[in-house]
């Protein structure tokens, strides 16, 4: 049931909401527009809104200067790799906690969450040294490993809250029907939890994609992800504004689309199921 309000009130609220929303969105919009301007236009003393001389050359220049595609591939490898690895470890664990809970299950869940709260700087130095000694610095697999570990608690928590909603009867029915554990999980649990697993995957891809502490501190040229790619533009003087925008747009566009697509499930994942 929609609340009844007068048309004037509705127009008022609508205008106000749109103005605020567009103000919040303006940095992204600015990036989008500037990416297609020439450098001269981007820093002109009389700023333009739409590009006067629409150009794609910034994108070419960015690719040339910093090899966008290499970084994008690294980002994809790390974010999807770590999430899928996390799901492989997380699904059996979440199954255990949701369907065969013991007295300690709650404590274990809490403890897993607590590992997420450990500030990265607290362990940066040993991880850096371990990585240096194991020759994992600046490698995609090293970074994937770290990303799996930092997102594993969230993956398990999200899966746990989704699994909890599946009636245990159905899994028991599968057991009665002769399904051993492997079949119970692959034929019954996973197909039923597809929406939950998909939103877990998406949220964790987003988090891994945007992670900027470990990616910057543990990589340089070879295994750099898009966060490292963009940081290489951190001191563009004058003429680089349009190219910076093009680079920024390239770095955020893929995940922005994923984010829009999955925003409905986001709240639940980000609050560990506490707000639905």
């Amino acid at each position: 049931m929609a609340r009844r309000v007068s048309v004037q009130t509705r127009i008022g609220f609508t205008v106000l909401a749109w103005v605020i929303a567009l103000l919040l969105f303006s940095p992204i919009l600015w990036t989008l527009l500037t990416a297609f301007k020439t450098e001269a236009e981007a820093i002109a003393s009389r700023p333009t809104f739409f590009p006067q001389n629409f150009t794609l050359e910034n994108f070419g220049a960015v690719q040339e200067r910093s090899d966008y595609f290499k970084h994008a591939i690294n980002s994809i490898l790390v974010s999807f790799g770590s999430t899928i690895l996390g799901l492989i470890i997380g699904i059996p664990a979440a199954w255990s906690m949701a369907f065969a809970p013991s007295k300690r299950t709650k404590d274990i869940l809490m403890w897993m969450l607590s590992t997420k709260m450990m500030p990265a700087v607290g362990v940066l130095i040993p991880i850096y040294l371990i990585f240096r000694d194991l020759r994992l610095l600046d490698t995609v697999h090293g970074l994937t490993l770290i990303m799996t570990l930092i997102n594993l608690p969230i993956i398990i928590w999200m899966l746990y809250t989704y699994f909890k909603e599946i009636p245990v009867d159905i899994l028991e029915a599968a057991r009665m029907d002769g399904a051993e554990l492997w079949n119970e999980i692959t034929h019954v649990l996973v197909p039923m939890a597809v929406p939950g697993i998909a939103s877990t995957l998406l949220l964790n891809v987003i988090l891994a994609w945007n992670e900027a502490f470990w990616t910057i501190t543990l990589t340089s040229g070879r295994a750099g992800t898009l966060t490292a790619f963009i940081s290489s533009f951190s001191s563009p003087q004058g003429l680089f504004l349009a190219k910076l925008s093009a680079a920024s747009l390239l770095a955020i566009a893929p995940i922005l689309l994923v984010g829009w697509f999955s925003q409905k499930q986001l709240v639940r994942g980000l609050t560990f199921g506490a707000v639905k």
């Binding site: 600015w30 900027a212 770095a251 955020i252």
Partner: peptide, 15 residues
């Protein structure tokens, strides 16, 4: 409104 949340920190800072 949710969009800025998906912008990676270094990009947000640079913009």
């Amino acid at each position: 409104v949710i969009s800025p949340f998906f912008v990676m920190p270094p990009v947000a800072a640079l913009i």
